[in-house]
Design a protein around this nucleic acid. Structure first.
Length: 302
DNA sequence: ATCCAGGAACTGT
DNA sequence: ACAGTTCATGGA
């Protein structure tokens, strides 16, 4: 992690292959997103550092990312925590040189890797949020998924208001562990999804499920098995969470409908490819499947 | 109206 | 192991 403490703000020096504006395009894909806002080239997000809610205002020059604090005067330890958070959110530990080298030779990826150069996987550092968002998104269209997430966050999350704008923080698992299935049914969750989300919240509250344990397990197969043992988490959700939260570059949600649509579009196919055809197309993506998938998702929003 | 959506568990064979 | 069914509702 490479960053500087400027007292009332911080400056983060990302690796070479990084383009803030490409990341903003991805973050701005839904009007109904409630967990961050984009205004005049700045990204606003409410985060929790050392148990304290902090509003971030994030901008970028060609060489660096800078973070300001519109509401708070941050302490030293908060500044460090914020740098860590932003570094992880933008997936800045990845060195993408090898990805672009592979992608340039790849029939599917060549054009989009060039077109979206510098785009990073926009991560979901909070494990509970990553799992919940994946479960919400199962088998419904993305627009409705955002609507459900918005209701969920507004009902059970925390917020701060600044200059007439309200900024939201995702509900904690402790909070969700104490609610009932009927509370989520009122928001139009299905009974199943409500059970899954509350069950995961309870497992996390009791300490049975932690991000630290999953990070420590490291090996793809082991983590994947641990995740799919959770009720509500199948192969797709496990790969989604490994990609967006646990930073596994080989995570590959191969059954994803968005991936299928993007491949169809990129290759000009008349129908969506089969799983076997995708395995063939992806045969050279070794250890970059997550980035390949993310760039293909990006290609769906122009 | 009809089909599908960033799936997964459950049931029956 | 594998295939079919159910869940649940909005968007296009």
């Amino acid at each position: 992690m490479n960053w500087m403490d400027h007292g009332l703000s911080i400056e983060i020096i990302p690796p070479k292959e990084f383009n803030f504006n490409e990341c903003l395009v991805f973050l701005g894909r839904s009007e109904n997103e409630i967990l961050h806002q984009i205004r005049a080239g700045y990204l606003y997000k409410l985060v929790k550092i050392n148990g304290e809610l902090i509003l971030l205002k994030i901008g970028s020059t060609s060489q660096s990312i800078h973070v300001e604090f519109p509401i708070h005067t941050p302490s030293k330890s908060v500044l460090g925590g914020v740098a860590e958070y932003v570094w992880e959110w933008f997936d800045l530990d990845q060195e993408l040189g090898a990805f672009y080298q592979m992608a340039r030779q790849d029939r599917v990826l060549a054009s989009i890797a060039d077109k979206y150069y510098g785009l990073r996987i926009m991560c979901i550092p909070d494990l509970f949020e990553a799992l919940t968002w994946a479960i919400i998104g199962q088998q419904i269209n993305l627009t409705f998924a955002y609507t459900l997430k918005k209701r969920f966050v507004e009902q059970f999350g925390e917020c701060q208001t600044f200059k007439g704008q309200t900024f939201w923080f995702f509900p904690t698992y402790e909070k969700i562990a104490s609610i009932e299935v009927s509370d989520l049914r009122e928001l139009q969750f299905s009974v199943r999804k409500a059970e899954y989300v509350i069950g995961i919240a309870q497992a996390m509250t009791s300490g049975q499920l932690t991000k630290e344990d999953l990070l420590q397990q490291q090996e793809y197969q082991l983590v994947h098995r641990t995740l799919t043992a959770i009720r509500g988490v199948g192969a797709w959700t496990a790969d989604y969470v490994m990609m967006k939260c646990l930073h596994h570059p080989a995570a590959f949600p191969i059954a994803d409908v968005g991936l299928h649509n993007a491949l169809k579009l990129q290759l000009g196919l008349e129908r969506k490819p089969t799983i076997e055809e995708i395995r063939e197309l992806a045969s050279d993506w070794n250890s970059w499947q997550a980035y390949a998938t993310f760039y293909l998702w990006r290609s769906l929003y122009e």
